[in-house]
Each structure stands twice: as structure tokens, then as C-alpha cells.
Amino acid sequence: MKDRLKSTPGAWVISREILEASPGYPSKEELKRKPVIVIECPEEIPCDPCETICPRGAIVVGEPITNLPRIDQDKCNACGLCIPICPGLAIFLVDNTYSEKEATVSFPYEYYPLPKEGDEVNAVNREGEIACKAKVLKVRDPKSHDHTSVITIVIPKEYSNQVRGIELQQKVDKNE
């Protein structure tokens, strides 16, 4: 009973390979070279707000609307406007150039309470497992985001490919 309930393997997530092969996912070089937008949207859903909001035309869905979003990393300046608009909360900003050993990950976050800048928090991976410690660098919650905050955390660089969020700030029952 005490062992933690685990998701059925493969039940929900398409493998990282598929994720990384999708057109919204930057290449390894791009990830290394500069702050990049990472779109984890591998299903053909009729949806294109990311394209609409991008001021530089870097994200393209086109016709039909179910196309997976493609991102032109040369046009993209990683402004992050697409992060809070994505209804699927599937867009992230990864910056491996933050410092020699550290990277930042920015992600959408809608829970209450929000962490505060400077907080030490647990960074979690796509499975909700604690990956490493993180420091909250920025919490942006302007009205235009419509309650979807964008949080930037600083983490050790080696985790930048798996960290996609932080542990919920509400009290979590550790026993389960």
C-alpha cells in the first residue's frame, strides 16, 4: 500500500523520441546555442493560437489547422508570448546558455499559490518526479496572460531536457 501508485508505462505520453521528432521541438544544436521555444504538441489537434500570437511569424501551423506547429528558430527570439496562450500548456522556453553549469526553463503554471522569485523549489520532470532542486528566477503573471503565469527556474544544465515544471506549492501528502 505504501508504494506510490505509478502510471501505466506508455499510457499517456508519446515517447521522448516522438516528442523530439515533432516539428515544434528544437534540434540539439539549437538547444545548446540559444534560448529556444520548445513545443511539446505531437497530436493533430485543430488549434493555432501559438501561430496567431507570434509577432515574428516564427510559429507556423497553416492549413489545415490540425498541422503540428513548426517553429523557425531563426525567426524566433524566444520572447515567450506563446507560452501562456497555448491551451494545452505545452510550450516551454529552455535556455541552456544561462550560465556555464545552469540552464533556465520557463513554463506555464496556473496553480495557487505561485512561488516567489528567489524561492528554492523542487523541479519536476514530465512524469511529476522530482528531478532536481531549482531556484525561481522569475514569476510573470500580467493580466494579458489571463491567469497563466510563466515561471522561470534555474536548474543544473543536465536536467534542462527533462524538467518541465515544479512541484505544486500546496501541501502535498507525502504518504501516498
Binding site: 505520453v13 497530436e43 500548456l89 514530465r126 512524469e127
Partner: peptide
């Protein structure tokens, strides 16, 4: 999947 992903991120 994106809905599942955001829930999974909370464990």
C-alpha cells in the same frame, strides 16, 4: 495528450 501531460507534471 497535452491535457494528460499537464496533469502528469504534478505526479
Amino acid at each position: 495528450m497535452v491535457h494528460a501531460a499537464k496533469i502528469r507534471r504534478t505526479g
